[in-house]
Each structure stands twice: as structure tokens, then as C-alpha cells.
Design a binder for these strands. Structure first.
Lengths: 126, 126
DNA sequence: CCGGATCCTTGCCGATACTG
DNA sequence: CAGTATCGGCAAGGATCCGG
């Protein structure tokens, strides 16, 4: 479980540690920009600017910030070509690909239910 | 695609509309609290307080806020029993269940890669 | 037990400017 | 082209109180 924390009993000590780590990772990854970046990378490798073009509306700052975070967690690999002008490429790692599949699932789900959601909203907004 | 917006050409007008709607939904749903609530609900129906107990660390305010949002988008159903004290139950709808499956995928992924991520972090933090 | 409203703090995020 | 740093506004979110 990611939702619940176990407290108290000593033999569950590493369970709580694993859980709080899980929660931390989840908090990192389960945000709009991170997920959109992962989806954008897909199976290709993209340059910094290319990712920015794919992920509509993201700012320079948020992009670097999230890319760093994803790199730190071993989800994307960062390759710097020491040319001029610099060329920096980002690729999903193996685990990153795994996560991407679930993210793609979310995207698919979103598109499949656009209609249902639009209806639900209209009903709710009255 | 959820990441990219099409601009300009008129025949893509409804595509851009669908896309911006998709982006809006994605922004709603792809946040830590919403996903944790969905995962907590699972296939059971829970009372307000029970959800709060499951989703560790969520505040009263965030919980109501996100439950409203999920209800508005037709992902959870809200049932009020006019008793005293009041009893309010929340259940995932059909589409909500569909989304939940992908969320569970994310949770599973997180747990499967705890080790990898911990290692990656240690390497990065040096 | 729930939900809404209000205040108040925190930190997210965009804008800008500067380095390599 | 890519990254870092700084600043400032504004919205997210926590604490609390009251009302059904």
C-alpha cells in the first residue's frame, strides 16, 4: 500500500520505511509535469528543447527541475555532448519505460472517457 | 496525445478542443492526492472518515476538495444517508474503476523499483 | 460525522538575467 | 542551447471555527 502507514510495532519498522519511501517517490512522480514529460519521452530520446516543445505550456524552470528529479530517481538518463552549442539528450531508462507504460494507460483512459467526463461535469455544474 | 497542442488549421478545431479538455482532466487527476484517494477507494465503498484514515497525511480540506473534483468528473459517486450523525459514502464509478487500474499499476511499479530508485538516488547525490 | 468558510502561511512557479 | 540563481506574486494547502 502506498496510502497507509503502519505505526508502532518494531517488526514493521522496515515496512514503514519502505512505505514512506514509496510515498516520497509517489509524491515526486505523481504530478502533472513529471507524467507529461515521461509520456513525451516515450521510447525516443529527445533534446532539452524538444521536450519543451512536446510538453505544451511547461516553463524552462519546471522542465529542468523535473528532469533533474527524474534523473535523480533513475527514470531518465541524461547525456551531454560536449559540443558547441551544447547538446543534451534525455532518454527513459528501463524502469522509466516501465512507468511510462502505466502513464500511457492513464492517457488512453483520459481520451476514452472524454465524453463521459464532459457529461458528468455538465450534470454536476447545475 | 496529451502533451502537444495543435494550432491554427480550422479542421483541427475539435481536435484542439478535445486536447485541451484532455489536458484539463489530466491536470485534475494527475496529482498526488487524487491518485491516492482513487487507490484507497479501490473496489470498496468508504465513508469520508475512512478515506481520511486510509490516505495518510491528507487534510480535511484537501480530501473534500479532491472528492468534489472526482465527483464532478464522474469518477466517484457520493451517497448521503440522511441519518444523524450523517453518513456519507464514496464509491468509484465504472470509469473510476478503469482509471484505478492504471493507478494501481503505478503503485505496483513504485514498489517493484524501490531498490533501484534508492540506488539511483545515492549515486546521484554524490 | 461532514462540509463549508475564513484566515494565514508556505512554497510553487513564472519571469528575468547571467554563465559556459 | 542548456543550466543556475534570484525575486516576487499568487495559489495551494493547513488550522480552525461554525453550522447542518
Amino acid at each position: 500500500m502506498v496510502t497507509k502507514q503502519y505505526k508502532g510495532s518494531p517488526e514493521e519498522a522496515d515496512l514503514t520505511r519502505a512505505d514512506s519511501l514509496a510515498r516520497e517517490i509517489f509524491s515526486d512522480v505523481a504530478n502533472k509535469w513529471a507524467l507529461l514529460i515521461i509520456e513525451a519521452l516515450g521510447e525516443r530520446t529527445l533534446r532539452f528543447g524538444e521536450v519543451r516543445d512536446e510538453v505544451d505550456g511547461i516553463s524552462h524552470k519546471m522542465l529542468t527541475q523535473n528532469l533533474r528529479m527524474l534523473e535523480r530517481n533513475g527514470l531518465v538518463e541524461r547525456n551531454v555532448h560536449p559540443t558547441v552549442p551544447p547538446r543534451v539528450e534525455y532518454t527513459l531508462t528501463g524502469p522509466g519505460q516501465g512507468l511510462r507504460e502505466t502513464v500511457s494507460g492513464m492517457c488512453d483512459w483520459t481520451h476514452r472517457h472524454l465524453g463521459h467526463i464532459e457529461d458528468a461535469r455538465r450534470r454536476f455544474d447545475t
